[in-house]
Nucleic acid binder design. Structure first.
Lengths: 218, 218
DNA sequence: AATTATTTTTAGCTTTGCCTAAAATAAAAC
DNA sequence: GTTTTATTTTAGGCAAAGCTAAAAATAATT
């Protein structure tokens, strides 16, 4: 696998995020990478020459299989570094994203492999998102939004959406973490908020909080 | 402290390595960073505008106090990452340099501080080189070349020069590591090679090996 | 179908950072 | 104290990556 610039990798990442393998519009891509449309046009032209994307002018850009492979390898690095930052260095889960954006560009297969081992071969990152395997396979995306469970269910938190730092702050102040287990004690017919109970007491979660917190039956 | 490009940081690092605080010639700098003289001329002009160096045309370039501060902070990061790679990920000391060259450019005070703590507040890196402190202070440069000790001395290896991968390979095959202790059993009058002894036996070290291995009386 | 609005591309400019080749300066040799 | 040699700087080019403003193509609306 050749070596790519950070800018290129950022475009690939954005394309994977927005479209997976499907075409993405110039405008959406521009918004995602924080550049102007004209810059995107020439950027994807460069990527096209490296066979990382297929470009149809005025129609859209699409990752090639190689592009998807690269995207996954970047995502793998990103999520492994996030895991390192949280598990080993004690960062909060709201702080790690910008750091991982830098670290994900470090080039070394060996480093990634060793990091993976050092972290105990994790399948999911600190937010519960799946970490792509070495060969590109994706572990399952875990859980359903809390709102999807019915009264009486015993649930375990397995994933949270990246819904901004205020959301993470709220999780922190409510002491909600991956792995926590609760019983669903009540569901409000008025505003769909949910009462979660545990051995230490119970509390209410708003509908919008519930929508960003994923759990499984436990 | 503002943010700098990787190229800028590489020039600063090279200047610190070559001159410390003293003037460095264009040619030496060019050689060190692996660029042509003309590239260096404009690079240092840019650095001058940021007050990281003082340039006297045709005479030489010199780090300013701010430049020295920056150089030390890069060196700190470099050596902390090397420590991480060896101590935590199990890399060999000959493999870590190119990786640390990438990692040293990651921007985050917080990350450096946490890494430092995670590694147990080390004062020296895996080669025994001092890791600059947060405030720029330098721990002592340890040891004297093995050749400087006299027959009968009990010594402990505390530092090795970065003398290329063949040198490191030789250390590995001879099982020489930081912390090892030996007795100086003999010094050849013919070629200045040295016989080191330990509980497990003894062996001879060539003069050029000795020159790159540093020890203290133990 | 024609016009308007939106999106995308082209054209041309800027900065960083490298290059080669030619000119200018400093150092060394005669 | 010239002249030759070595070093350093200008001058001019090139690629990556961004920008603005104008032109072209597509999509939406009357």
């Amino acid at each position: 696998m050749k070596t790519h610039t950070e800018s290129e990798e950022n475009y690939i990442k954005a394309l994977y995020h927005l479209g997976g393998g499907l075409p993405v519009s110039n405008g959406d891509l521009a918004q995602r990478v924080g550049a102007k449309g004209s810059s995107v046009t020439q950027a994807v032209k460069r990527l096209g020459q490296k066979d990382l994307v297929n470009v149809v002018p005025y129609k859209g850009v699409q990752l090639t299989p190689q592009g998807i492979r690269l995207a996954k390898s970047i995502l793998r690095k990103h999520r492994l570094w996030e895991t390192f930052l949280v598990d080993k260095l004690g960062f909060g889960w709201d702080e790690v994203h910008p750091l991982a954006e830098q670290l994900e560009h470090i080039q070394s297969e060996e480093l990634v492999d060793r990091l993976f081992q050092f972290l105990g071969s994790p399948k999911h990152d600190p937010h519960g998102d799946p970490i792509p395997e070495r060969d590109g396979q994706m572990p399952p995306v875990l859980g359903q939004p809390i709102g999807a469970f019915s009264k009486g269910s015993e649930i375990r938190i397995v994933r949270v959406e990246d819904a901004g730092s205020e959301f993470f702050d709220q999780l922190d102040t409510m002491n909600i973490n991956l792995g926590n287990t609760y019983e669903i004690r009540a569901i409000s017919a008025f505003d769909s908020s949910v009462e979660l109970g545990s051995s230490t007491g119970s509390f209410w979660l708003s509908q919008s909080m519930c929508a960003n917190i994923y759990a499984i039956q436990s």
